[in-house]
């Protein structure tokens, strides 16, 4: 265990090294460049390889190669660069390889801007690239949680042989907080599926597993159903008896947490469901809430509602689902309480 006071991006990078990531190939883009900067110095010292790729396309395919060879590999990007990773993520999912990706969300479509945002929710939760796959997507709300989820993401990626994503944002990535790191782990890259030369055995082919899998459609359906059943993670704060349940992840969930305590102090029954996995979406969190529940309110840092849609799907729209969109600014907890009170007064 090591204690430190660290920036989110640096802590994420250190956590990856401690999870025995041995290869990172990436490309600079704000607000995630500190991940590259940290790894360029510290990954080689830990015995791994850092490569600054000529593009995100190259970076993700280097990760594909390293993952195919059985090593723990990662790349990170933000918004526009994250779009470029999607081709490779689809291939890695199709080849059923473990790898970890990071999207430090920034605001807007196209070039957008470098402010914090939660606009990439769809691309993070729907697979992102072409075809039938999903990515297990973790949304940390603190620097410590970033560290914890990076280690978990590498483990789950190997358990399910599927890409995992850390869906961070410019605030969580840039803020400094105290953090505790786990000890560095050692992992064996010689998985039975990894290419390392046939070494006297049968030769292996890493490509879309659909070419060599019987009943592929059913297999893929079952694989993702298993993940959905077993990997939902969330934090629930005073949601059981709430009249209004806020739903928020990442940076906006921190404000919502404060809003809940502010509201409760004023006698307003406000609660919060904070998805930690945004895929699989924590549908179970919405089971068995109190009879007094009047509405859900998603709080999102985007120009269009995204998370709202998943709440609607998870709840079957039996209870009204409202959204509060803060764009690229982090709202105050008072603003959120006001939104909730307005809903109660409707």
């Amino acid at each position: 265990m090591t204690r430190a006071f660290m920036k989110g991006n640096h802590a994420l990078a250190e956590a990856a090294i401690r999870a025995n990531m041995t290869f990172f190939g990436g490309y600079p883009i704000t607000p995630q460049s500190e991940i590259l900067e940290y790894l360029s110095d510290n990954l080689p010292k830990a015995g791994g390889t850092f490569l600054q790729a000529e593009s995100e396309l190259a970076g993700v395919n280097m990760v594909y190669g390293a993952a195919a060879a059985g090593h723990r590999a990662m790349t990170s990007s933000s918004g526009p660069g994250f779009s470029l990773l999607q081709e490779g993520i689809s291939y890695i999912a199709s080849a059923e390889l473990p790898a970890v990706f990071v999207d430090v969300q920034r605001y807007g479509s196209g070039l957008g801007d470098i402010f914090q945002a939660q606009s990439d929710y769809y691309v993070a939760t729907r697979g992102g690239g072409h075809g039938d796959y999903r990515v297990i997507a973790y949304a940390p709300a603190s620097v410590q949680e970033t560290v914890d989820l990076v280690g978990l993401a590498f483990d789950k990626a190997e358990q399910y042989r599927n890409p995992c994503l850390i869906l961070s944002d410019a605030s969580i990535a840039q803020m400094m907080e105290p953090v505790v790191f786990p000890e560095k782990r050692k992992c064996d890259p010689d998985h039975e599926w990894a290419v390392r030369g046939k070494r006297g055995g049968d030769f292996k082919k890493i490509t879309s597993t659909m070419y060599y899998t019987e009943n592929f459609d059913q297999y893929i359906h079952d694989k993702y159903a298993t993940i959905q059943a077993n990997e939902q993670r969330w934090e629930s704060i005073q949601a059981e008896d709430a009249e209004i349940v806020l739903v928020a992840y990442g940076i906006s969930s921190r404000i919502c947490k404060e809003a809940v305590s502010t509201a409760r102090a004023e006698g307003i029954r406000l609660g919060l469901i904070r998805p930690i996995t945004v895929w699989p979406f924590p549908e179970e969190a919405f089971d068995g809430l109190g009879k007094g529940l009047r509405a859900y309110l998603t709080v999102e840092l985007s120009a269009l509602p995204r998370l709202r849609d998943d709440v609607m799907l998870a709840t079957g729209m039996k209870t009204p689902v409202h959204h509060f969109l803060a764009g690229n600014t982090v709202p105050s907890s008072q603003t959120i309480v006001k939104q909730a009170v307005a809903l109660l007064e409707k």
């Binding site: 490779g88 292996k204 890493i206």
Partner: peptide, 28 residues
């Protein structure tokens, strides 16, 4: 052709090969 293979996305074979070689320098 009986060697180990990785099939990359269209055009990306060189990047994939770099990733493999960097983590398994003992391989051809």
């Amino acid at each position: 052709f009986g060697t180990d293979w990785v099939q990359a996305a269209h055009g990306r074979a060189a990047a994939v090969a770099c990733g493999i070689k960097r983590v398994r320098p003992e391989n051809f």
